[in-house]
Design a protein around this nucleic acid. Structure first.
Length: 105
DNA sequence: GCCGTGACGATTC
DNA sequence: CGAATCGCCACGG
């Protein structure tokens, strides 16, 4: 059964499971796939995610709660607005309140 | 099969 | 706490 499933595909599968109103991290996804050091590769997979795919890539943030580069979603503050519309709270530093919203696959 | 690349992560100064 | 540095791993050429 030639499952030619690439690492990217697995990343997308996991990312698609992130519940609404919650966020996960690149490292968490990498660990869920058995490659704890592949956080960067996970980020690359997000970058490679085709626009228009229903992938909730805005729910994937850094381990610190910081968001991705602003130009990654088509404009500054876009990712934040998307998350806020899902009731995700931000702290005074502009980072996601991980204690409340972090979700581990 | 080596080299450069990157939406990270942890450590260090 | 912020900036800089190194390490890590999968993909494409």
């Amino acid at each position: 059964m030639g499952v030619t499933e690439t690492f990217f595909e697995r990343v997308w599968s996991v990312a698609a499971k992130v519940p609404r109103g919650r966020v996960t991290t690149y490292g968490a996804i990498a660990r869920a796939l058995g490659s704890p050091g592949a956080a960067r590769t996970v980020g690359w997979a997000m970058r490679a995610a085709p626009a228009g795919s229903r992938l909730p890539c805005h729910r994937v943030v850094k381990a610190t709660g910081e968001l991705s580069p602003e130009d990654a979603f088509g404009g500054p503050g876009v990712q934040r607005l998307l998350l806020e519309s899902e009731r995700v709270a931000f702290d005074e530093h502009g980072r996601v309140d991980m204690k409340r919203h972090l979700w581990i696959p």
